[in-house]
Design a protein around this nucleic acid. Structure first.
Lengths: 154, 154
DNA sequence: CGAAACAGGACCATTCAGGTCTTTAATTAG
DNA sequence: CTAATTAAAGACCTGAATGGTCCTGTTTCG
């Protein structure tokens, strides 16, 4: 479904939340703030730390803090860090597809990949912050939940 | 990795290849042309038929042909047909995220989803065709890479 | 009537993402 | 110096879903 991995989703949320805190924050604290299970938060933070998005401080009184401003982090870079390079298909950058094969679509896929990538690069984490629009959205949500039957599924 | 499902990939290739043939083409024939295993080709074609991308003719001498021009099919529509609506995250269109939860990013994701979607809607299957289009495409890529400011980050 | 080919499922299997746990190392507090 | 706290690193399990196969109709042509 061309969907984002949940880890990447978490990473964005965690970074944004982390940016709203003062000083260093422990992963249990972030877990509490975000609602994401603690071990998972820790895992994501380790990846983010390895890629230079956050700075870590070990030991007692340790924790994490942003390595730079949210405005300087693009959605694309976070996704790339967590999930690997954004590549819709196998045959990217002249690399041949899985099998033989006769797809012959050349670099056509590259156009798509580039387009998606630049789209996501143009969106900073700063622009993902809630803002005042939130209230409006929450109202909509409540309205939706009230009116429509939740076709949950399972 | 924000990757396209293989079925959607196949669908695009199949449609493009089908557009290059004359008359109706059987699924075994398309399998031979594309290199994709026949049962899978058949499955994809059934989905495409159900969504009106191809017209089918049953019985002996039957087969498939395009329902309309490749120029009238967007990459987005094909992906949506095969994989379902394009939605990077769970919380889209006011629907709340998985758990509780305090992500609070509200409709921020909608911006991204819309951006991706419109990007893919702007690319027709016609522009995915190989040949002379290839050079043009490469030019586009270079232009994109040159013009846009890469606020990479990592 | 029989062969060819689509229609529409059911169904299995493999992959991999998501998540948990354990151990180790670093840092600070007492 | 010792103990407590917390990140680092990685092994490992599980479950969902994608990818792929197959089977049983149904239609159409020869």
């Amino acid at each position: 479904m061309l969907k984002l991995s949940r880890l990447a989703d978490y990473a964005i949320v965690i970074l944004v939340k982390l940016g709203e805190q003062d000083g260093v924050v422990t992963s249990p604290a972030l877990a509490a703030i975000t609602g994401v299970p603690e071990p998972t938060v820790a895992k994501v933070l380790k990846v983010l730390s390895a890629h230079g998005f956050v700075l870590s401080q070990r030991g007692a009184k340790g924790g994490y803090r942003l390595a730079r401003s949210l405005a300087d982090m693009s959605v694309a870079s976070v996704i790339a860090a967590v999930d690997g390079q954004i590549a819709l298909t196998a045959c990217v950058g002249g690399r041949e597809c899985d099998t033989g094969l006769s797809c012959g679509l050349c670099g056509s896929w590259d156009v798509i990949n580039t387009a998606i990538r630049s789209t996501l690069e143009g969106i900073s984490l700063e622009s993902m912050r809630p803002k005042e629009a939130c209230s409006t959205v929450l109202t909509q949500i409540n309205k939706l939940n009230a009116t429509q039957t939740v076709r949950e599924g399972a």
